[in-house]
Design a protein around this nucleic acid. Sequence first.
DNA 1: AAAACGTGGCA
DNA 2: TTGCCAAGTTT
Length: 355
Amino acid sequence: MPPPSPRRLARAIEAWFLKARRDLPWRPADPAAARDPYHCLVSELMLQQTQVSRVIERFETFTARFPTIESLAAADAHEVLALWSGLGYYRRARLLHAAAKAVVSEHAGEFPTQPEQIQALPGVGRYTAGSIASMAFHARAPIVDGNVARVLLRLHADGSPQTASNTQKRLWAQAQELVNAAEHPGVLNEGLMELGALICTPRSPACDRCPVRAHCAAHAQGRQHELPTPKAPAVQRELFCDAVRVRDARGRVLVERRPDSGLWGGLYQAPTRESADRHARLPELRAWIGAESLDRSQRFTHQTTHRRVSFRVWETSPVRGMGSGERAWKSRLQLGSLALSTPQRRILLPGLSLA
DNA sequence: AAAACGTGGCA
DNA sequence: TTGCCAAGTTT
Protein backbone atom coordinates (compact mmCIF):
# COMPACT_ATOMS: atom_id res chain seq x y z
CA MET A 1 0.00 0.00 0.00
CA PRO A 2 1.44 3.41 -0.99
CA PRO A 3 1.88 5.91 1.86
CA PRO A 4 -1.42 7.76 2.25
CA SER A 5 -1.55 11.14 0.56
CA PRO A 6 -1.69 13.88 3.22
CA ARG A 7 -3.97 15.90 1.01
CA ARG A 8 -6.63 13.22 0.57
CA LEU A 9 -6.32 12.10 4.15
CA ALA A 10 -6.75 15.62 5.51
CA ARG A 11 -9.75 16.41 3.34
CA ALA A 12 -11.44 13.10 4.16
CA ILE A 13 -11.02 13.69 7.88
CA GLU A 14 -12.28 17.28 7.68
CA ALA A 15 -15.34 16.29 5.66
CA TRP A 16 -16.14 13.47 8.07
CA PHE A 17 -15.71 15.71 11.10
CA LEU A 18 -18.18 18.29 9.81
CA LYS A 19 -20.84 15.56 9.78
CA ALA A 20 -19.89 13.48 12.82
CA ARG A 21 -18.80 16.22 15.23
CA ARG A 22 -20.24 15.87 18.73
CA ASP A 23 -21.93 18.81 20.36
CA LEU A 24 -19.77 19.69 23.38
CA PRO A 25 -20.07 22.64 25.77
CA TRP A 26 -16.77 24.18 24.63
CA ARG A 27 -17.54 23.80 20.91
CA PRO A 28 -19.38 26.62 19.12
CA ALA A 29 -22.11 25.86 16.58
CA ASP A 30 -19.90 26.70 13.60
CA PRO A 31 -17.02 24.17 13.29
CA ALA A 32 -14.82 26.49 11.24
CA ALA A 33 -15.38 29.60 13.37
CA ALA A 34 -12.48 30.96 15.41
CA ARG A 35 -12.83 29.86 19.00
CA ASP A 36 -12.49 31.96 22.13
CA PRO A 37 -8.86 31.26 23.18
CA TYR A 38 -9.74 31.54 26.87
CA HIS A 39 -12.42 28.87 26.55
CA CYS A 40 -9.91 26.73 24.63
CA LEU A 41 -7.37 27.17 27.41
CA VAL A 42 -9.83 26.10 30.10
CA SER A 43 -11.20 23.10 28.20
CA GLU A 44 -7.77 21.92 27.03
CA LEU A 45 -6.28 22.05 30.52
CA MET A 46 -9.29 20.17 31.86
CA LEU A 47 -9.03 17.59 29.08
CA GLN A 48 -5.38 16.71 29.70
CA GLN A 49 -5.44 12.99 30.53
CA THR A 50 -9.11 13.35 31.42
CA GLN A 51 -12.14 11.91 29.70
CA VAL A 52 -14.57 14.16 27.86
CA SER A 53 -17.48 12.96 29.99
CA ARG A 54 -15.71 14.15 33.17
CA VAL A 55 -14.99 17.58 31.68
CA ILE A 56 -18.55 18.09 30.43
CA GLU A 57 -19.68 18.20 34.06
CA ARG A 58 -17.13 20.87 35.01
CA PHE A 59 -16.59 23.21 32.08
CA GLU A 60 -19.75 25.28 32.32
CA THR A 61 -19.61 25.68 36.09
CA PHE A 62 -16.04 26.88 35.79
CA THR A 63 -16.57 29.34 32.94
CA ALA A 64 -19.78 30.63 34.50
CA ARG A 65 -17.85 31.51 37.65
CA PHE A 66 -14.85 32.82 35.68
CA PRO A 67 -16.27 34.06 32.35
CA THR A 68 -13.15 35.93 31.24
CA ILE A 69 -9.43 35.45 31.53
CA GLU A 70 -9.28 38.63 33.63
CA SER A 71 -11.78 37.25 36.12
CA LEU A 72 -9.76 34.04 36.42
CA ALA A 73 -6.51 35.95 36.81
CA ALA A 74 -8.06 37.96 39.65
CA ALA A 75 -9.51 34.88 41.38
CA ASP A 76 -8.54 33.45 44.71
CA ALA A 77 -6.19 30.49 44.18
CA HIS A 78 -8.11 28.24 46.50
CA GLU A 79 -11.43 28.93 44.82
CA VAL A 80 -9.91 27.83 41.51
CA LEU A 81 -8.70 24.65 43.17
CA ALA A 82 -12.12 24.10 44.75
CA LEU A 83 -13.79 24.22 41.34
CA TRP A 84 -11.29 21.58 40.24
CA SER A 85 -12.28 19.26 43.11
CA GLY A 86 -12.77 15.71 41.85
CA LEU A 87 -11.20 16.34 38.42
CA GLY A 88 -7.76 15.07 39.43
CA TYR A 89 -4.26 16.22 38.49
CA TYR A 90 -4.76 19.27 40.66
CA ARG A 91 -1.53 20.93 39.57
CA ARG A 92 -3.44 21.82 36.40
CA ALA A 93 -5.71 24.16 38.34
CA ARG A 94 -2.73 26.06 39.69
CA LEU A 95 -1.11 26.15 36.24
CA LEU A 96 -4.32 27.36 34.58
CA HIS A 97 -4.58 30.14 37.15
CA ALA A 98 -0.94 31.06 36.51
CA ALA A 99 -1.53 31.04 32.74
CA ALA A 100 -4.44 33.46 33.12
CA LYS A 101 -2.28 35.73 35.24
CA ALA A 102 0.51 35.55 32.64
CA VAL A 103 -1.81 36.57 29.80
CA VAL A 104 -3.05 39.53 31.83
CA SER A 105 0.32 40.70 33.11
CA GLU A 106 2.71 39.72 30.32
CA HIS A 107 0.42 40.14 27.31
CA ALA A 108 -1.75 43.01 28.57
CA GLY A 109 -4.78 40.71 28.57
CA GLU A 110 -4.43 40.02 24.84
CA PHE A 111 -4.19 36.26 24.32
CA PRO A 112 -0.94 35.42 22.44
CA THR A 113 -1.53 34.11 18.92
CA GLN A 114 1.76 32.35 18.08
CA PRO A 115 2.19 28.68 19.05
CA GLU A 116 5.58 29.41 20.68
CA GLN A 117 4.09 32.20 22.81
CA ILE A 118 1.14 30.04 23.79
CA GLN A 119 3.40 27.15 24.74
CA ALA A 120 5.32 29.49 27.05
CA LEU A 121 2.22 29.74 29.25
CA PRO A 122 2.18 27.59 32.42
CA GLY A 123 0.58 24.18 31.93
CA VAL A 124 0.69 24.49 28.15
CA GLY A 125 2.87 21.98 26.31
CA ARG A 126 3.25 21.37 22.62
CA TYR A 127 -0.09 19.60 22.25
CA THR A 128 -2.15 22.25 24.08
CA ALA A 129 -0.37 25.10 22.30
CA GLY A 130 -1.05 23.59 18.88
CA SER A 131 -4.62 22.94 19.80
CA ILE A 132 -5.33 26.51 20.93
CA ALA A 133 -3.33 28.08 18.11
CA SER A 134 -5.16 26.09 15.43
CA MET A 135 -8.66 26.35 16.87
CA ALA A 136 -8.59 29.96 18.07
CA PHE A 137 -6.19 31.52 15.55
CA HIS A 138 -6.25 29.23 12.48
CA ALA A 139 -2.51 28.53 12.86
CA ARG A 140 -1.12 25.56 10.91
CA ALA A 141 0.22 24.05 14.11
CA PRO A 142 0.15 20.26 14.46
CA ILE A 143 -1.15 18.33 17.45
CA VAL A 144 -0.39 14.85 18.71
CA ASP A 145 -2.36 13.52 21.64
CA GLY A 146 -3.25 9.95 22.52
CA ASN A 147 -6.04 9.87 19.93
CA VAL A 148 -3.94 11.29 17.10
CA ALA A 149 -1.03 8.98 17.89
CA ARG A 150 -3.29 5.93 17.74
CA VAL A 151 -4.86 7.03 14.43
CA LEU A 152 -1.48 7.72 12.81
CA LEU A 153 0.21 4.56 14.09
CA ARG A 154 -2.66 2.50 12.69
CA LEU A 155 -2.72 4.35 9.36
CA HIS A 156 0.96 3.45 8.95
CA ALA A 157 0.69 0.04 10.64
CA ASP A 158 3.48 1.25 12.87
CA GLY A 159 4.08 -0.99 15.87
CA SER A 160 6.96 0.98 17.37
CA PRO A 161 6.55 2.03 21.02
CA GLN A 162 4.44 5.18 21.13
CA THR A 163 6.50 7.05 23.72
CA ALA A 164 9.89 6.45 22.09
CA SER A 165 11.43 9.75 21.05
CA ASN A 166 11.95 8.73 17.41
CA THR A 167 8.32 7.60 17.22
CA GLN A 168 7.16 10.90 18.68
CA LYS A 169 9.28 12.81 16.19
CA ARG A 170 7.70 10.87 13.32
CA LEU A 171 4.17 11.41 14.65
CA TRP A 172 4.65 15.16 14.96
CA ALA A 173 6.06 15.31 11.42
CA GLN A 174 3.05 13.39 10.08
CA ALA A 175 0.65 15.62 12.01
CA GLN A 176 2.41 18.66 10.55
CA GLU A 177 2.02 17.29 7.01
CA LEU A 178 -1.67 16.75 7.56
CA VAL A 179 -2.32 20.19 9.00
CA ASN A 180 -0.36 21.74 6.14
CA ALA A 181 -2.68 19.99 3.69
CA ALA A 182 -5.87 20.94 5.54
CA GLU A 183 -8.52 23.38 4.49
CA HIS A 184 -8.98 24.56 8.10
CA PRO A 185 -6.19 23.64 10.54
CA GLY A 186 -8.52 23.65 13.53
CA VAL A 187 -11.04 21.42 11.79
CA LEU A 188 -8.37 18.92 10.75
CA ASN A 189 -6.84 18.80 14.22
CA GLU A 190 -10.12 18.42 16.03
CA GLY A 191 -11.29 15.93 13.40
CA LEU A 192 -8.21 13.80 13.94
CA MET A 193 -8.93 13.64 17.66
CA GLU A 194 -12.62 13.04 17.13
CA LEU A 195 -11.78 10.19 14.77
CA GLY A 196 -9.66 8.61 17.49
CA ALA A 197 -12.35 9.17 20.09
CA LEU A 198 -15.35 7.91 18.10
CA ILE A 199 -14.09 5.52 15.40
CA CYS A 200 -10.45 4.58 15.83
CA THR A 201 -10.93 3.63 19.48
CA PRO A 202 -8.39 1.64 21.51
CA ARG A 203 -10.38 -1.58 21.98
CA SER A 204 -12.78 -2.22 19.13
CA PRO A 205 -12.26 0.30 16.33
CA ALA A 206 -15.30 0.85 14.08
CA CYS A 207 -13.39 0.45 10.83
CA ASP A 208 -16.63 -0.04 8.88
CA ARG A 209 -17.51 3.59 9.59
CA CYS A 210 -14.01 5.01 9.14
CA PRO A 211 -13.59 7.77 6.56
CA VAL A 212 -9.94 6.83 5.93
CA ARG A 213 -10.25 3.04 6.00
CA ALA A 214 -9.07 2.88 2.37
CA HIS A 215 -5.77 4.50 3.40
CA CYS A 216 -5.21 2.47 6.55
CA ALA A 217 -2.35 -0.03 6.54
CA ALA A 218 -3.38 -1.60 9.83
CA HIS A 219 -6.87 -2.27 8.50
CA ALA A 220 -5.45 -3.71 5.27
CA GLN A 221 -3.34 -6.11 7.33
CA GLY A 222 -6.16 -6.82 9.82
CA ARG A 223 -3.91 -5.58 12.62
CA GLN A 224 -6.02 -2.67 13.88
CA HIS A 225 -6.73 -4.47 17.17
CA GLU A 226 -3.11 -5.06 18.02
CA LEU A 227 -1.90 -1.52 17.27
CA PRO A 228 -0.59 0.55 18.84
CA THR A 229 1.42 -1.68 21.15
CA PRO A 230 0.18 -1.15 24.72
CA LYS A 231 2.41 0.62 27.20
CA ALA A 232 3.68 -1.10 30.31
CA PRO A 233 1.40 -0.59 33.33
CA ALA A 234 2.61 1.87 35.98
CA VAL A 235 4.10 0.41 39.12
CA GLN A 236 1.79 0.97 42.08
CA ARG A 237 3.16 1.90 45.47
CA GLU A 238 1.33 1.45 48.74
CA LEU A 239 0.30 4.37 50.92
CA PHE A 240 -1.25 4.02 54.37
CA CYS A 241 -3.34 6.90 55.66
CA ASP A 242 -4.92 7.45 59.06
CA ALA A 243 -7.46 10.28 58.95
CA VAL A 244 -9.07 11.68 62.07
CA ARG A 245 -12.56 13.17 62.00
CA VAL A 246 -13.08 15.67 64.79
CA ARG A 247 -16.49 17.33 65.20
CA ASP A 248 -17.19 20.02 67.73
CA ALA A 249 -20.52 20.76 69.45
CA ARG A 250 -21.59 23.04 66.63
CA GLY A 251 -21.01 20.38 64.00
CA ARG A 252 -17.83 21.94 62.69
CA VAL A 253 -15.03 19.67 61.48
CA LEU A 254 -11.29 20.01 61.85
CA VAL A 255 -9.25 20.30 58.63
CA GLU A 256 -5.68 20.95 57.55
CA ARG A 257 -4.14 21.85 54.22
CA ARG A 258 -1.74 19.69 52.23
CA PRO A 259 1.54 21.10 50.88
CA ASP A 260 1.20 22.78 47.49
CA SER A 261 3.19 20.15 45.61
CA GLY A 262 2.89 16.41 45.35
CA LEU A 263 -0.18 14.22 45.68
CA TRP A 264 -3.40 16.23 46.17
CA GLY A 265 -1.24 19.37 46.41
CA GLY A 266 -2.91 22.29 48.17
CA LEU A 267 -6.14 20.44 48.97
CA TYR A 268 -7.77 20.35 52.40
CA GLN A 269 -8.17 17.16 54.39
CA ALA A 270 -9.17 15.81 57.76
CA PRO A 271 -5.96 15.68 59.82
CA THR A 272 -4.17 12.75 58.15
CA ARG A 273 -0.96 10.83 58.86
CA GLU A 274 0.61 9.02 55.91
CA SER A 275 3.19 6.29 55.74
CA ALA A 276 4.67 4.29 52.88
CA ASP A 277 5.01 0.98 54.70
CA ARG A 278 2.39 0.67 57.45
CA HIS A 279 -0.45 2.40 59.28
CA ALA A 280 0.40 4.62 62.22
CA ARG A 281 0.27 2.98 65.65
CA LEU A 282 -2.62 4.02 67.82
CA PRO A 283 -0.59 5.70 70.61
CA GLU A 284 1.43 7.84 68.23
CA LEU A 285 -1.71 8.71 66.31
CA ARG A 286 -3.38 9.84 69.55
CA ALA A 287 -0.37 11.87 70.57
CA TRP A 288 -0.14 13.45 67.13
CA ILE A 289 -3.73 14.69 67.04
CA GLY A 290 -3.72 15.45 70.76
CA ALA A 291 -6.75 13.31 71.55
CA GLU A 292 -7.45 11.18 74.61
CA SER A 293 -9.12 8.39 72.69
CA LEU A 294 -9.82 7.40 69.11
CA ASP A 295 -12.56 5.21 67.68
CA ARG A 296 -12.11 3.59 64.32
CA SER A 297 -15.17 4.24 62.17
CA GLN A 298 -14.35 3.35 58.59
CA ARG A 299 -11.77 1.87 56.26
CA PHE A 300 -11.52 1.87 52.52
CA THR A 301 -8.98 1.91 49.71
CA HIS A 302 -8.49 4.47 47.01
CA GLN A 303 -6.61 3.88 43.75
CA THR A 304 -4.61 6.34 41.74
CA THR A 305 -2.42 5.63 38.73
CA HIS A 306 0.69 5.20 40.87
CA ARG A 307 -0.66 4.34 44.30
CA ARG A 308 -2.92 2.08 46.21
CA VAL A 309 -4.00 4.12 49.22
CA SER A 310 -5.49 2.45 52.30
CA PHE A 311 -7.46 4.75 54.56
CA ARG A 312 -8.42 4.21 58.17
CA VAL A 313 -10.78 6.80 59.59
CA TRP A 314 -10.90 7.60 63.30
CA GLU A 315 -13.37 9.63 65.38
CA THR A 316 -12.56 11.74 68.38
CA SER A 317 -13.95 14.68 70.30
CA PRO A 318 -12.41 18.13 70.23
CA VAL A 319 -9.67 19.06 72.64
CA ARG A 320 -8.78 22.65 73.46
CA GLY A 321 -6.17 24.00 71.04
CA MET A 322 -6.85 21.56 68.24
CA GLY A 323 -7.94 24.32 65.85
CA SER A 324 -4.74 26.31 66.19
CA GLY A 325 -1.65 26.32 63.99
CA GLU A 326 -2.11 24.60 60.66
CA ARG A 327 -5.59 23.37 61.50
CA ALA A 328 -8.94 25.11 61.26
CA TRP A 329 -12.61 24.40 61.97
CA LYS A 330 -15.02 24.37 59.06
CA SER A 331 -18.80 24.18 59.02
CA ARG A 332 -20.49 21.67 56.74
CA LEU A 333 -21.46 24.54 54.46
CA GLN A 334 -17.84 25.68 54.23
CA LEU A 335 -16.68 22.12 53.61
CA GLY A 336 -18.92 21.97 50.56
CA SER A 337 -16.94 24.68 48.80
CA LEU A 338 -13.50 23.49 49.89
CA ALA A 339 -10.97 21.86 47.57
CA LEU A 340 -11.06 18.20 48.63
CA SER A 341 -9.72 15.02 47.08
CA THR A 342 -12.21 12.24 46.42
CA PRO A 343 -11.23 10.14 49.46
CA GLN A 344 -11.27 13.18 51.75
CA ARG A 345 -14.68 14.18 50.42
CA ARG A 346 -15.80 10.70 51.37
CA ILE A 347 -14.42 11.19 54.87
CA LEU A 348 -15.55 14.76 55.48
CA LEU A 349 -18.84 14.85 53.58
CA PRO A 350 -20.22 11.31 53.86
CA GLY A 351 -23.47 10.76 52.03
CA LEU A 352 -22.88 13.69 49.72
CA SER A 353 -22.40 12.83 46.08
CA LEU A 354 -19.71 14.56 44.10
CA ALA A 355 -20.96 17.78 42.60
C1' DA B 1 14.63 11.72 31.28
C1' DA B 2 12.02 8.81 34.06
C1' DA B 3 8.63 9.43 37.42
C1' DA B 4 4.86 11.68 39.38
C1' DC B 5 0.47 13.31 39.10
C1' DG B 6 -6.35 11.54 40.00
C1' DT B 7 -10.43 9.88 38.75
C1' DG B 8 -14.42 7.06 37.25
C1' DG B 9 -16.18 3.98 33.73
C1' DC B 10 -15.94 -0.11 31.42
C1' DA B 11 -14.60 -5.04 29.95
C1' DT C 1 -12.18 -7.81 40.96
C1' DT C 2 -8.44 -6.06 38.49
C1' DG C 3 -6.52 -3.72 34.82
C1' DC C 4 -6.89 -0.43 31.27
C1' DC C 5 -7.53 3.92 29.81
C1' DA C 6 -8.59 9.39 28.75
C1' DA C 7 -7.76 16.06 24.53
C1' DG C 8 -0.19 15.72 28.71
C1' DT C 9 2.89 18.61 31.45
C1' DT C 10 6.25 19.32 34.78
C1' DT C 11 10.35 18.45 37.42
